[in-house]
């Protein structure tokens, strides 16, 4: 039967084409590599080179001292919590902005970018005064036995604030492109609202959500300005890794500082790589056209 004929597989890349249709491939690839080397790889390799001046035992003790280990726990833990919170509530915000029409929507939409634009120190000071035990929010948390400022909770709050735009801005365009007919189809087939979200909408936005989560998480790991005010910077308790690096630099322990930086770098890079692979794996299965 004629209509049974199958669409031929997508053109298998430029490899089989005798000549590329788009010009300037060599130039643009060369430029990309040069730019990445200049902007990203050179500074990072400088970090590695400095670290290499340490002997292995000294490196090991620098990156595994109790104070440093505590800071890893806080930095990774709080960043992870902040990114997870943002994944949930950022999705809600993106959904509301895309699907709901309400007065002031554009205003709310531009508010989302504020954590990008605000100097991080300003954000840090503002958050600290809000969550301090006599602050607007802190005074209501205090009677409940919750202390936000100068605790890991405060660090998480700051990192959540910083990470929000990443999730909203990556999920929003995907939601905008997602035709409501998929949801209508699911509803007409008898799916509940929750089933429609979980089985139809969520798989579509999952790769973008994962990207937003990864970006928020990565940003949280490197964040310094907004955290140092609200954390109180107590060694072993509320000291984040970037602060520890600054502290070492101030003590002229450059090699020690770069050693910690290398560990952070390696950990962040492997996590981002993992998330990228996970995303590729989940999205490559169906999106062929």
């Amino acid at each position: 039967m004629a209509i049974d004929s199958i669409i031929p597989p997508a053109v298998p890349g430029a490899a089989s084409a005798p000549r590329r249709v788009l010009p300037g491939f060599g130039l643009s690839l060369g430029y990309t590599v040069f730019y990445l080397v200049l902007i990203v790889l050179v500074p990072l390799s400088a970090t590695l080179a400095k670290t290499a001046t340490l002997s292995w035992p000294r490196f090991w003790s620098a990156v595994t001292s109790a104070r440093v280990l505590a800071s890893y726990r806080l930095s990774f833990g709080a960043s992870l919590c902040g990114a997870l919170i943002n994944a949930v509530f950022g999705l809600v915000v993106a959904w509301t902005l895309v699907r709901c029409r309400f007065p002031g929507r554009r205003l709310v939409d531009s508010l989302v970018d504020l954590p990008f634009a605000l100097p991080t120190a300003v954000a840090g000071i503002a958050l600290t005064s809000l969550y301090a035990s006599n602050g607007w929010i802190g005074q209501w948390l205090e009677p409940l036995g919750i202390r936000a400022a100068y605790t890991p909770l405060g660090v998480t709050i700051a990192l959540t604030f910083i990470g929000l735009p990443f999730v909203v801005r990556t999920v929003q365009p995907i939601l905008e492109d997602l035709d409501t007919q998929f949801e209508q189809a699911a509803r007409s087939l008898g799916a509940s609202r929750w089933q429609t979200f979980r089985r139809v909408v969520f798989p579509e936005i999952w790769p973008a959500l994962l990207t937003g989560f990864a970006l928020a998480f990565a940003r949280g790991l490197g964040e310094y300005g907004s955290v140092v005010f609200i954390s109180g910077n107590m060694p072993m308790r509320t000291e984040i890794t970037p602060l520890l690096i600054i502290t070492k630099l101030e003590q002229y322990d450059y090699a020690g500082a770069t050693a910690i930086a290398v560990v952070m770098l390696a950990a962040s890079f492997s996590l981002l790589l993992l998330i990228n692979l996970l995303q590729r794996w989940t999205s490559s299965r169906h999106v062929l056209v």
Binding site: Q181, F182, Q184, A186, S188, L189, G190, R199, P203, R285
Partner: peptide, 25 residues
Amino acid sequence: GFVFQHYALFRHMTIFHNVAFGLQV
């Protein structure tokens, strides 16, 4: 049973799961 103009098939699901959807939910 509503068939949309552009079909609105769930693109992350196989043909099997598309057809089974109404029963599975």
